[in-house]
Design a protein around this nucleic acid. Structure first.
Length: 178
DNA sequence: CCCTGATTCGC
DNA sequence: GCGAATCAGG
């Protein structure tokens, strides 16, 4: 993946909005958070004033062990679902979670069904180990992702993994729900 | 362990 | 210029 003008622009915008390097990498797709950080530096974009490591002052040499015998096995990140048009309020700030809203939704719409309590994550909050099961209408602003912890490299939590991968015979006896 | 950004340096 | 490896910290 090369840094096209569009990708660089998106990087600048997201970085300015305060998204973390990993979140930006996820949205751009095809790049690691290291790549994002490296690019940020090369572009001379302002670093995070005080975020992360306070290492600004006491920077250690950080030398490398010659050549890296990198395994390179894990690779393949999960597809970032980029086709999803930016939801209504697109800024990170507007997508912050309202705890009361979470409670309300959990009770009113899921009350009598055994469903893991969604963490109501926005697209930008997903990581490699959060459940990416979509909940709600992508065109409405209450759309979110489950966000529960997903084991290993599974894109879904235990519950949603069952829904996603259940065998045909099991699928027959379980009514569709979501 | 999860994550964050910062830095180095082989490519 | 790029970004993995690594560091340093929350």
């Amino acid at each position: 993946m090369n840094w096209t003008d569009e990708r660089v622009e998106k990087l600048k915008r997201l970085w300015a909005e305060g998204l973390s390097a990993s979140q930006i990498a996820a949205q751009l797709g095809g790049v690691s958070r290291n790549a994002v950080i490296g690019k940020v530096h090369r572009l001379n974009l302002p670093g995070r004033a005080k975020a992360g490591g306070v290492a600004a002052a006491s920077r250690a040499p950080a030398k490398r062990p010659a050549v890296a015998p990198r395994p390179a096995t894990f690779a393949s990140r999960v597809t970032p679902a980029r086709p999803i048009a930016r939801t209504v309020g697109a800024t990170a700030l507007q997508e912050e979670i309202d705890v009361d809203t979470v409670r309300e939704i959990a009770v009113t719409s899921k009350g009598n069904v055994v469903v893991p309590i969604s963490k109501q994550l926005a697209l930008t909050d997903l990581t490699e180990r959060t459940c990416k099961w979509p909940v709600g209408d992508p065109l409405k602003d209450d759309f979110h992702f489950c966000g529960c912890e997903s084991p290993d490299a599974s894109p879904y939590c235990a519950y949603h993994a069952r829904l996603a991968y259940q065998p045909v015979h099991e699928r027959r006896r379980t009514a569709a729900r979501a």
